[in-house]
């Protein structure tokens, strides 16, 4: 294993030191419990928004802390959800009196730890609403699985809810908006290569040199199937078809198209994929009104991409366009 690390066990702490050194003017980094908090938090009268999850998906979530997006992020160990005390502390740190939103990706560990945080927070007198993201169409949603994973739509939820919170929308309004974004978003990912967590030192799964895995999760969870690597047009079609079939996106719909890199894929390839996405969208009569292209929810050094489509409404579009000023996403600010 070759990685730019000091020690496998110290990766997250070392990264946080770097984050503090780089962005200490706009965020407060705390190490025990680990969290990244907007420097002006709590913002009085504004709904606070926190998220958290395992590390290894950067810039999500820490890179999205700042005006117009998250008030705090709680990083866990690599691919391991954070602990309840982190979320409980972050909730207190961002409560400006208008309540706090927890954005939780649907993974067993994340859900349980955020549940415990909410229980610990009882008695603190802070109103908490949870938005659970579960947009990965690669997973069959049934009683017999942990349910669909939260992936690309999480970035969109955090941005759009962040905009609404800056606009002083109420806790209920922001929560309802976030749930609507999740309900109208669908994603699917693929991998060209596995990734290696620093602690294990081994690839998260085996994939032959000429194979790709379609439907991969952001922690290397297995996808729907493997096949010989084909042209980008074929990959885009493999991801877009289940997405389009899952939510009845219909002709004339306005959508946000998000082509995300898994960490090890260069932007040039993401644009190649985006060209195919745009073509397929046009064939289906979808109007891509907004887009996002880049590596925002990653899986360490994994090569591959995910595609997210979000059916937009007027309110979502307005808050997507609203100013945002975070290390990972910035416009109009």
């Amino acid at each position: 294993m070759k990685k730019l690390i000091n020690t496998p066990d110290g990766v997250v702490q070392d990264e946080l030191h770097g984050f503090q050194a780089a962005h200490g003017d706009r965020v407060r980094v705390s190490f025990d419990p680990a969290m990244i908090v907007r420097i002006d938090a709590p913002v009085k009268g504004k709904v606070g928004i926190i998220s958290g999850g395992g590390s290894g998906h950067e810039p999500m979530h820490g890179g999205f802390v700042g005006p117009g997006m998250l008030d705090a992020a709680c990083p866990g160990e690599v691919f391991t959800s954070p602990t309840p005390d982190q979320m409980a502390e972050a909730t207190k740190a961002v409560d400006g009196g208008a309540g706090v939103i927890h954005v939780v990706k649907n993974y067993t560990g994340d859900v349980m730890n955020f549940d415990m945080a909410a229980e610990l927070g009882k008695g603190e007198g802070i109103e908490v609403e949870t938005i659970l993201t579960n947009d990965d169409v690669a997973v069959e949603d049934s009683l017999y699985t942990a349910g669909r994973r939260g992936v690309g739509v999480t970035v969109l939820v955090e941005k759009i809810c962040g905009g609404a919170a800056e606009d002083r929308r109420s806790l209920q309004q922001v929560a309802e908006l976030g749930r609507r974004v999740n309900a109208n978003g669908r994603s699917m990912g693929m991998a060209l290569t596995p990734c290696i967590t620093p602690a294990s030192g081994n690839p998260s799964f085996e994939l032959a040199d000429d194979e790709v895995e379609i439907g991969i999760g952001i922690h290397g969870e297995p996808g729907r199937f493997r096949e010989k690597v084909g042209p980008a047009s074929q990959v885009a079609e493999r991801l877009m078809t289940p997405i389009l079939e899952d939510l009845p996106f219909s002709s004339g719909d306005r959508v946000l198209a998000f082509v995300n890199g898994m960490g090890g894929t260069p932007l040039i390839e993401l644009y190649v994929v985006y060209a195919e996405v745009a073509k397929i969208a046009q064939q289906h009569g979808l109007r891509i009104e907004r887009n996002l292209i880049g590596s925002y929810i990653t899986s360490l050094e994994m090569q591959g991409c995910s595609i997210t489509l979000l059916k937009l409404d007027e309110e979502m579009t307005r808050y997507w366009d609203a100013p945002v000023n975070t290390p990972g996403l910035r416009w109009k600010a």
Binding site: G76, S81, T83, G109, M112, N113, M116
Partner: peptide, 14 residues
Amino acid sequence: LISSVGGAAGPLYG
């Protein structure tokens, strides 16, 4: 365990 493990094992063993 609750404050140091994370994942599913932290809450469950905790």
